[in-house]
Design a protein around this nucleic acid. Sequence first.
DNA 1: GAATGGCCTTGATCTGTGTCAAGCCGCCTT
DNA 2: AAGGCGGCTTGACACAGATCAAGGCCATTC
Lengths: 239, 239
Amino acid sequence: MPHLAFPNSNCDGFRCATHCAVRPLAICGELEQAEHEEFERLAQHVRYGAKEALFSEDEVADAVYSLVEGIARLYKLLPDGRRQIIGFALPGDFLGMAPSARYSFSADAIGGVTVCKFFRGPFLRFIENKPHMLMRMNEFATRELSLAQDQMLLLGRRSAEEKVAAFLVGWRDRLARLEGVTKTVSLPMGRQDIADFLGLTIETVSRTFTKLEREKLIVIVPDGVRVLDPKRFDALAAA
Amino acid sequence: MPHLAFPNSNCDGFRCATHCAVRPLAICGELEQAEHEEFERLAQHVRYGAKEALFSEDEVADAVYSLVEGIARLYKLLPDGRRQIIGFALPGDFLGMAPSARYSFSADAIGGVTVCKFFRGPFLRFIENKPHMLMRMNEFATRELSLAQDQMLLLGRRSAEEKVAAFLVGWRDRLARLEGVTKTVSLPMGRQDIADFLGLTIETVSRTFTKLEREKLIVIVPDGVRVLDPKRFDALAAA
DNA sequence: GAATGGCCTTGATCTGTGTCAAGCCGCCTT
DNA sequence: AAGGCGGCTTGACACAGATCAAGGCCATTC
């Protein structure tokens, strides 16, 4: 059961600085002072524990979410339990827009997650006469769509080794936007999650990590990998 | 080389009725009279012949397109030539928005295609202070994204037979929005296109069609299939 | 510090789909 | 009507990755 971190979401300056470190990257990043205060009054800051669900596919989509902190797993299931992870959400990402009245996928926390939660009605009323906000939402949707298309190419046409390499490169680059460039790529998600993201089995993912390590492209470290040969590695990921 | 069907795009009533039959479904479907006339003045109606490119990945994205008539193939290529078709565009679909200054995929005509083409600058200036239009673009993007996510599930987690069945059901339902419900599903794209859409080879697609026919689920007809047992067929596509 | 359980790795074997190759069918050209 | 060509189908075989099974490692608990 999620609890409200700030039931009175009209948080003071200190807390805002803490919890909205990603604001420039988020959907609300270009709101000016007055608008942002109005927007904040619509928000509930909610914290979810590890593996807790933010929302599930086919539920009535009564809220949208701006991820503030932590990482979420977005996925779809087939009736027999096969799972496809359609993305990992990072701080600044915007979740929960659906083309119908119900969510088209499920989202749950990997480790702890903090979000700004907005009920649909008030949210839509807020944006409906704010062209700048609508443009920003369009940018977000277009970027998401483009990532999804990259992933289709990966799922449909790349080998297991290419999938893993492309995943690591893509993940490293997304983390770099948040944390700056590093040699060590942290992987908060488990091997099964990676497998379900890449359309592979956990065994194939594990073997492929080992293979990349044998080929001296990476070193496997606790909860991550270190990229040894970025040049050769990026080439493998691109091809 | 495409030629302008209406170099003076300010077309008269008759031509509009002919060429904008899909307007209620298109991006401009909710513009009121005066706005729509302004919008039309920004448009070039352009016709492309079979296999002609509307635009290509990595080109400067200087225009967006509303597909009026015909079908387009949207795809990405790997450096070695492997191709993933990320979608088939139908009349009413909106193409060409990109998260960067360049197109993130290629689009070309299957058979003949007619579009409304808008240069990026005038288009953005037109929409920037029209919340209704921006909302509609959001709806379009959200629907596209949801389709892309369905496709990820298909590519990552379905068997060849499930892929083909799900493709036929999805395609039939999209055509039904335009042409009404029919038993016969027309397939204007070739087997290689279907293969590249489903992450399969042409041989596997061909064998799977034959298998579905042997199992009395479909009959293969010229340029399409007839679905014999919709109940059983939809079940196969869902599972 | 022994037992438990979750997560990951590794090995052996199987199989669905890819690859390679041949042939068919309908259509266009001459 | 003969030839050629593009698109499709079919068969034989190969292989990447799945499946099945076992074992290792580490953190947590009692």
